[in-house]
Design a binder for these strands. Structure first.
Lengths: 220, 220
DNA sequence: GTGGCATAGAATGGATCCATTCTCAATCAG
DNA sequence: CTGATTGAGAATGGATCCATTCTATGCCAC
């Protein structure tokens, strides 16, 4: 019956999906303004679904709208990013603890596979994508949609700075990340809440401190 | 020049302010649907600013929008609310710790005054309003807008259940709350981070456990 | 030459109208 | 009597046009 080919969903959702990718990929960097007409024109739609999409993305922490001033991608200075990472330390450890009892064997296997790919990854874009999927998958068992939404918001807000950091650090520091991930995987396999919280908060905390050492990432 | 009487701000902001109050006051309870036309008619505006307002409130955690299905006030079951309170324990203690160094003497005096009013309050609506203002004021020094927005979201999500709980508990349990608040005020006056975290997380945790004991609050 | 101000252009906010989707109740088959 | 189905009504999504606000460039006074 439904042979109608692409014709996907609502226009606002399509626009939101496009902008979400563009912002997370760094094509639309923090601080830059998003003009509704530009996007509307590109999609052959009116400005209405674009405004709708921008509001949706605001809920996800990817845009900020001000009345009569338009939409921007939020940019953070060093202090703001530090606080967001402290929020991550507290929120994501909770998400992991609640997820732990519900993680399936399939998901565990996929985590192992993702970590293998992470260790084999060569370019930054691939690593960032795999790393995001890895961590979010460890939270997949969490039975609270609100908590998961918060976690996603935090990841969205910090995505650009993770990329900027990785681009400036081509060294082998990656070995530390892999060690942390392996310890985390082991703790997950053992369903060890204490070690999970320990390794995850340590992982995030170390990144936070590393970021604070690199003021060149910020453009304030 | 600007004698034009009310004519305040953008229509979407006015609608948002009205709905925000109505939801927080419990006039629009969790689970109920909000029809755009109803609100638009009440304000003599079109449905457009109403949709805009509903999206704004979604960012604040006060509404939920689904494509082609309209807007609802989010409702939580026992498990969801328990998780949100656990998030509060972790997020609000961080907000308080970061706020502590920047709280002014004026703000401290106002906190004392608010607590006096809380102890003198007689009806539930007054208590809820004062209690919300009290806690949010303790976070007022926090230099991170993102963290404050998260705290506000969490308070918004739980407001209705706090009221339902208070309405069913007219006893003197209030003395415990007052003791907790007094201890918190003292720790704030001493700028004692450890005690602040201790008393605040204890305050939230006790409420969380109390709520879990009252299934009649939930309508699932 | 510098600073403030006014005006033109552009971008956003809002209203009205039309298209699409959903909901729900009544009907009919089993 | 129970369940699925279909059609009418209502509610939401989107397009176009107009009003309002912001911004930036250039001009003028000092």
């Amino acid at each position: 019956m439904d042979d109608s080919p692409p014709r996907s969903e609502a226009a606002s959702e399509r626009v939101a999906a496009y902008l979400r990718q563009a912002i997370l990929n760094g094509e639309i960097p923090p601080g830059s303004r998003i003009r509704q007409e530009d996007i509307a024109e590109r999609f052959g739609a009116s400005r209405l679904p674009v405004r709708e999409a921008l509001r949706m993305l605001e809920t996800e922490g990817l845009t900020q709208l001000e009345v009569n001033k338009g939409a921007r991608v939020p940019a953070f200075d060093r202090l703001q990013l530090d606080v967001i990472y402290q929020m991550r330390e507290r929120i994501e450890t909770l998400a992991l603890r609640l997820s732990l009892p519900y993680l399936t064997a399939d998901q565990e296997a996929e985590l192992q596979d993702l970590q293998d790919q992470i260790e084999a990854s060569e370019d930054v874009a691939t690593f960032l994508d795999l790393d995001r999927r890895f961590h979010l998958l460890t939270y997949a068992g969490c039975p609270s949609p609100e908590l998961l939404a918060s976690v996603t918001r935090l990841w969205n807000s910090t995505q650009h700075y993770r990329r900027a950091f990785m681009l400036q650090n081509t060294e082998d520091r990656q070995t530390i990340v892999n060690a942390e991930h392996r310890l985390l995987l082991d703790a997950i396999a053992r369903r060890d809440e204490v070690d999970c919280e320990r390794f995850l908060s340590g992982h995030i905390r170390r990144t936070r401190i590393k970021l604070a050492d690199h003021p060149e990432i910020f453009d304030d």
